[in-house]
Design a protein around this nucleic acid. Structure first.
Length: 232
DNA sequence: GACTATGCGACAGCTATACA
DNA sequence: TGTATAGCTGTCGCATAGTC
């Protein structure tokens, strides 16, 4: 082993998650199993990040373990570390989506400044800035328009540009989230927008054309990020 | 080989929440 | 109010490995 492996106890101490709970997560496939069974079992150090990410996704975002497992299947190591870091840096109750995005932006900026290597995502934005502006203008009468000031395109990587585009879309949609939703849906009407073959956005209730346009653009951005290519 | 520490799988039970 | 579900949590029997 490489010395970075951990016993279950060390993993528990490092993550603050009880050993019994960690074993439960291993049995459900959320954490990697030990390299060998029995006494002296060593777990990969990456399990610490995964355990912290589970806590983050569960406590901050209310995801079920099953949903977290599905996200782990699609997530990169970098993404899992980012989720784990959000647990470390957020000791209080989770904040708004905007606060979360601000944290992501801050960490991304620091990481890029320290190690400006090419990003793993090469997706190009499929949505022209004017399209987002037009959609936001259409929604302006519905709720207060709030937008971020985009960084100059010449100084950003493609992934940073995509992140900014997604942020703009999310911020434009933020007004829809002003009323907290119940933990379980009671309405039977949903609008579903496919992102990939096994991923879709589901929005409770009917959407007007402007709202639907925004969600479709958000789905386009997510699809581009996940697949690394643009749609026709 | 005996003892001890550590870990595993299985099962039952507890708590909180949502739903009919 | 009863039932179902999710997410742990406690316990038990067993296996493995280190020490004497």
């Amino acid at each position: 082993m490489d010395g970075q492996d951990l016993t279950l106890e060390e993993l528990s101490e490092r993550t603050g998650v009880e050993a019994r709970t960690l074993r439960s997560w291993v049995s459900e496939g959320l954490l990697a199993p030990p390299f060998k069974p029995g006494r002296g079992a060593r777990y990969p150090a990456s399990n610490a990040d995964r355990a912290l990410a589970i806590r983050s996704l569960k406590d901050m975002h209310g995801l079920s373990l099953a949903e977290i497992g599905r996200r782990f299947l699609m997530a990169s190591d970098e993404q899992i570390r980012e989720w784990a870091a959000s647990t470390v840096q957020t000791s209080a109750r989770p904040g708004s989506a905007r606060e979360y995005l601000n944290k992501l932006r801050g960490r991304a900026a620091a990481a890029e400044a320290a190690r400006p290597e090419p990003t793993r995502f090469v997706a190009k934005s499929m949505v022209a800035p004017a399209d987002v502006d037009a959609a936001a203008d259409q929604l302006a009468p519905i709720y207060e328009r709030r937008r971020v000031t985009a960084a100059p395109a010449a100084s950003t990587t493609s992934s940073a540009t995509d992140r900014t585009r997604i942020e703009q879309l999310i911020l434009a949609l933020e007004g829809l989230l002003a009323t907290p939703a119940p933990r379980r849906a009671t309405s039977t009407t949903w609008t579903r927008i496919s992102v990939t073959a096994d991923l879709e956005l589901s929005v409770r209730g009917d959407l007007d054309p402007a709202q639907r346009l925004l969600f479709e653009q958000l789905a386009d951005q997510l699809r581009a990020l996940l697949t690394g290519r643009t749609a026709a």
